[in-house]
Design a binder for these strands. Structure first.
Lengths: 303, 303
DNA sequence: GCATCAAACAAAGA
DNA sequence: CTCTTTGTTTGATG
């Protein structure tokens, strides 16, 4: 155990030692959030644009929203037009305005593979064959989805249709965040994790967002003043931006298998017992509902 | 305090002494349930059939579902056709297929008054004048409603439209009850009180229903076997029938002010410390969620 | 550990 | 429990 004393630490000085312990424990089950999905969607856009699906193998029918036969028939022949992120979903706009929607649930991979590679049907839930004979292998660690959505039906999708604000969109202003929070009385952490309010934040990035905003996860939403909301807004945009900048979180990969490096830049998340980058106080772990929180007890005062 | 020992008591021997303590404590805030509403609706049918509303005074606009002006304009001139009970609501089918719906919330009165009587506007929420110049005074102790529903819109009413099964209807069979309970995992008392499953049961009659079925209020719904369900079905029909037979519960009145006498026939409800009518064991009180339960600890074994 | 939904449960408000 | 709304907890889901 590292004893820190009262020395003041700043920046990301302790990033590398954190990265090691974090990735060794959690890399097996990466749980993709908005930045990871942005990185994946961008790589898919680069790799799959102008490609066409010529065949599909479904090894886990439960991850579909349609019967296998209908899914296969409908998706075959469709070309990829544009691929983007929405909340924790990758949305691929296909020919004829269909949407192929990927949700990695509690973790998984969407990987491009060469024509001659042979997928393990026990591991790969869905395999798409493209017209240049390359393949997309979709693997889910746990509870992922590959949904094919009819033209114009995205708003009626049981999950996608209920997603809240995109936190990196231009219209997600500090004023709007303030209005959204007004009158609510729950915990700020629960609010940030609720996809119907703000879409894309999960239990990894929320830690650093709250730390940047100097907010304790148990703070009640209706106790936030204008300054709190301003710091929160800045924290959301900054931390999610950093996640994208570093290619996504620990264990996440783009479609070619390039690994994210945000683990090296985590401030408090998953750094129990290590020093706060701002003040050196040892980071503590606490339970908030069913999730774990990581906080600096000095920077994030309990309510 | 009465000490009972091991003597066996049966029937409703102790009804009268219970009736006194019960009515003295609770009569001020009666909370009407299905039997009380049946009795009220029958008396209204008798008293109001073929009468016509010629005027209305609204002293508490919040109990309406429409602005006062629109409510008054729409209801004036309508004649009563048929009046019936649905859950804890009195539904009066009016001319032109409009429905005038009364909900007494946590208690109240719908009373017929002579032409020359003068209502206290502070007490009577709504007063209807009929074409024979007699009056209907609607009083609410707390949170009652007088709603006017357009033809064909009853199913879209935010409360009435969501009501569950009518427990005295012919199609409420033991088989249906079994199907309704299948797969649920909550407490049987919570289930019985939830209006979206079965409509009309409240915290008075539910006590005797569970006692008749020999079920503890904390029993999990999914632990009931066929015999439990059969006793429960019988208990529901029997107890609600008794409530009607005795003219409704304590503090309830029909439209002429005749008082209900079911208080004298309560088996365990609100009889803490008195003997169980079946075995003589002293009745106990316990909290189930936010409500109070009254049980015989010998007849209704804890789960 | 935590994604998401549904049900159950609790508190507050009208 | 009178009923709704909100939020929290728990259980189930490949």
């Amino acid at each position: 155990m590292i004893v820190i004393g009262s020395v003041l630490y700043v920046g990301t000085k302790y990033g590398s030692e954190l990265a090691h312990s974090y990735t060794s424990e959690l890399a097996r089950v990466p749980m993709p959030e908005l930045p990871d999905i942005v990185v994946l969607a961008r790589s898919m856009q680069e790799a799959l644009r102008n490609q066409r699906i010529v065949g599909v193998a479904v090894n886990q029918p439960k991850c579909l929203n349609l019967p296998v036969a209908k899914f296969s028939r409908s998706v075959s022949g469709l070309g990829f037009r544009h691929i983007k992120q929405r909340g924790k979903w990758v949305l691929a706009e296909m020919d004829k305005d269909w949407t192929l929607a990927f949700n990695q649930g509690m973790g998984g991979e969407v990987q491009l593979h060469k024509p001659d590679e042979v997928p393990d049907p026990k591991r790969e839930r869905v395999v798409f064959r493209l017209d240049d004979q390359s393949q997309i292998w979709v693997h889910h660690w746990w509870y992922g989805h590959v949904h094919l959505v009819e033209p114009g039906k995205l708003g009626a999708h049981p999950q996608i249709g209920k997603l809240g604000a995109e936190p990196l969109a231009e219209d997600f202003t500090v004023e709007r965040l303030g209005e959204m929070l007004a009158g609510r009385r729950g915990r700020i952490k629960s609010y940030l994790l609720d996809q119907k309010f703000i879409a894309g934040i999960g239990n990894v990035y929320v830690q650093d967002i709250l730390w940047h905003a100097r907010l304790h996860p148990l703070r009640k939403t209706n106790t936030l003043n204008a300054s709190d909301v301003a710091r929160l807004h800045k924290g959301i945009r900054h931390v999610l931006g950093e996640g994208i900048r570093w290619g996504g979180g620990p264990g996440e990969q783009d479609v070619w298998g390039n690994k994210g490096r945000y683990a090296e830049h985590l401030q408090v998340g998953y750094r129990t017992g290590k020093p706060c980058p701002a003040c050196g106080t040892l980071i503590e772990e606490l339970r908030v509902g069913s999730t774990t929180s990581y906080i600096c007890p000095k920077c994030q005062i309990a309510p």
